[in-house]
Design a protein around this nucleic acid. Sequence first.
DNA 1: TTAGATGTTACTTTATATATTACATCTAGT
DNA 2: ACTAGATGTAATATATAAAGTAACATCTAA
Lengths: 148, 148
Amino acid sequence: MRYSHRLSDAVHILAYIDIYHDSDLSSTAIAASVESNPALVRRLMVALRRAGLLATQQGTAAPRLARQPAKISLLDVYQAVEEEGNLLHVDDKTNPKCVVGGNIQETLRVAYDEVQRAAETQMAQITLASLVDDIWTREREKKANGNR
Amino acid sequence: MRYSHRLSDAVHILAYIDIYHDSDLSSTAIAASVESNPALVRRLMVALRRAGLLATQQGTAAPRLARQPAKISLLDVYQAVEEEGNLLHVDDKTNPKCVVGGNIQETLRVAYDEVQRAAETQMAQITLASLVDDIWTREREKKANGNR
DNA sequence: TTAGATGTTACTTTATATATTACATCTAGT
DNA sequence: ACTAGATGTAATATATAAAGTAACATCTAA
């Protein structure tokens, strides 16, 4: 499969807006950091706005976080940008005439739901604040190593 | 993205072999239940054999489970057939000159690893035996409803 | 009024999971 | 040994979804 980077890019956008809140926050500037393109950034920002995570508006006003970083979880971002929202996928064209083919779809759906819940519980415990903290920690470490 | 059904199809194969152990277990027969094609089934069976879950051999011998269904977990199957094995994916081409772009990849990798562990812990608790039980339960319920 | 941004759509490109085909290889049964 | 019929394996084609691209309407602050 071709992997989706929507979640990673959305976190990137939010972290960028938090860290560079006094600089250029245009979709073009953010896209340069993501190494993607402005339209994709804008589409993701719309999804984040609809989920109540980001305050954006047309015109020249800079976007800002709609909640404190500590109040935004990875799960919030995941649910904002991954509409399908399933980490595992059922094969939905099995043979209904067979005991296995006729029932395994529902069986797997229930099992996958349990896995999904476990993953989402963990995602709920990771905040944008902790991710931004980690980014800064790594940045400091890089500087310290570079100056040795 | 086009969703991968490797895990679902692999579980399907194992459940089929468990349930239909006295019938035709050729890759062609299994492919008819999966509504896929024999080559895909064979490729998945090779992966399952390499992981020690399935005993197959060339020639006419029927495949059989290498372990009891209660000793085969969804995690075992997942690790057997999903070589990449990451449910979430880091965008690996961010701008290294930016504080965010230069560090977020590693930051997200650590966070995603925690989510992955939570999901895998749950997968480890789901066995092939419980999945096959669930398939039979659904089959009985369908029959009961059909005979009303 | 206007510059410059977002919101939005349509289309193109690219990546990759699966389907398809073919054939080498092996084994059980004769 | 021979053969039928199965698996193991690779090459290629196809389908599909993610991301890239371009264009433009819309809005807002100065």
